[in-house]
Design a protein around this nucleic acid. Structure first.
Lengths: 277, 277
DNA sequence: CTAATAGTGTCTATTAGACAGTATGTT
DNA sequence: AACATACTGTCTAATAGACACTATTAG
């Protein structure tokens, strides 16, 4: 409230003088998540759900031939959200995809060429809507996630290529739940995108239990078994049927369709109920 | 996985050509929160806690004489976190303050002069540690928050000046809990800082129940009544004593100190227990 | 019939909400 | 003594976890 000596006023103004600060480049990077199904080896069994992410193979240096999240520069006359949407549409040919800002990664050396800050987003899609129209060099990788107190290991697989990354987590403060991620092993992903993916997974894992974002990855109709599998694959643990059904009971509504053809009891198809009770 | 026609490959490369994209300025803005005490009018009563934020009066255009969050440009050789810490230290003269990235605000017209993207942080301090060393033009404003389904009203007061802002909230998606904030009334805050403050409050409100971040706003020793008041003022509702004590029971530990002097039964002083059970 | 999933009933443990009561300082 | 807060006991409601059971299909 009260003013101080001139010296610190000077410093104050210096801090606010933009000409002292070089401008930098900003990109929007998209972690586009989905669930895919693996065909069962037994006619009775259900197809196995896999949590997956869309990666793009880089064709230029730096990180040539490494995989990265789709992204692009934010234009000077374009909001970050608009840039994110533009990139999302470029990759998926779809509009109105669920998307939210994740985090802004601003380490100085994250791009070896020059200073590039990246605002990362996560997006959730129903993979079946776009299976056939992939952007050049893009590929869906299923992820197997192994997490404990200290580190996270993610194994990627797109059918042709497999690799895994290991990231260790350190609590930033004992009072919070924020982790600092440190890449321990990563020979196949470009930039700090391993961190971005892990942050995105963590965000999703948290939000699945108190929001309805899962339904962005489901088709319009689904069985409760399928829905449960998606929860399980994201949470990385099995759920008990009655508990699961209690939790999602008022989020979904029955239809009169039934899914038959598995060597077992048919399953009623449900639909997302939206936000009215 | 499979490649597409040349045209889209071209487009792909265009998107990755940085020379097509002008660079922009990035600032780090700090929403520094704390709780302050108002003196009671009755010798028996406890001092009333107020949730407060540190604002700075602008001395230059644009938004001359309006209040804004302390902030500054991110240097080209400085990480965003480092810039945030630098600003935090400039304002408080303290190191090791709790701080976390909140959100990156990237609308095109948020600064009337030029394109400036802002990565906002929240920081939590114990106000008593720095009461006397305020940076020029800085002032603590207590906030009264009135929130319903559709909008949030925040009334600011620093003892000399009072004003209020009204912000309406619109769910970005029925499947999530993310709001788009729209400023309805704001004649005293610069830029989009009203949105930043409201986002920060919302973040804090959420995290208080599943993390220990409150303790960053407490002194080393405190009574459970004081702690409860801080919870209440942030959550905007009253809590029942037994429930509150159950919840924080294993986060704090008793000391052998006692706070006397109020016209009522003395209160045992507690201390934050850290992260070991 | 069998393997595999679909779906329900119910018991128990844990947690959250509510209220009433006791305790103890200052003026 | 009276007020205001400190602190505890306990009942109840709601929720989460666990298990056992029944149902129904393709092959």
């Amino acid at each position: 409230m009260d003013e101080k000596d001139y010296a610190s006023e000077e410093e104050f103004l210096k801090d606010y003088d933009s000409s002292q600060f070089e401008k930098l480049s900003l990109t929007a990077d998209m972690a586009i998540f989905s669930v895919s199904s693996e065909n069962p080896n037994n006619y009775r069994k259900l197809s196995k759900k896999k949590f997956s992410v869309l990666l793009v193979k880089r064709t230029t240096y730096p990180f040539k031939n490494k995989w990265c999240l789709p992204g692009g520069f934010v234009g000077i006359d374009e909001s970050i959200d608009d840039a994110a949407e533009r990139i999302l549409n470029r990759e998926t040919n779809l509009h109105n995809i669920y998307m939210e800002q994740l985090y802004t990664f601003g380490d100085v050396k994250r791009d070896p060429r020059m200073r590039i800050v990246s605002t990362a987003y996560i997006a959730l899609v129903d993979k079946n809507k776009l299976e056939d129209c992939l952007f050049p060099n893009a590929s869906w990788f299923s992820m197997d996630i192994l997490e404990d107190e200290k580190e996270i290991q993610v194994s990627f697989d797109n059918g042709n290529e497999q690799f895994s990354v290991i990231i260790s987590k350190v609590l930033k403060s004992p009072t919070s739940d924020r982790y600092q991620y440190i890449i321990k092993k990563d020979n196949h992903l470009a930039f700090d995108h391993a961190k971005v993916i892990v942050s995105g997974i963590s965000r999703l894992k948290n939000k699945i239990s108190y929001t309805d974002i899962v339904f962005n990855m489901m088709g319009e109709y689904f069985t409760l078994g399928e829905l449960q599998q998606v929860y399980e694959v994201i949470l990385g643990k099995e759920l008990l049927d009655p508990a699961f059904r209690r939790i999602i009971a008022n989020k979904v509504e029955k239809t009169d369709m039934v899914k038959t053809g598995g060597g077992h009891r048919p399953s009623v198809m449900y639909r997302y109920r939206g936000h009215h009770e």
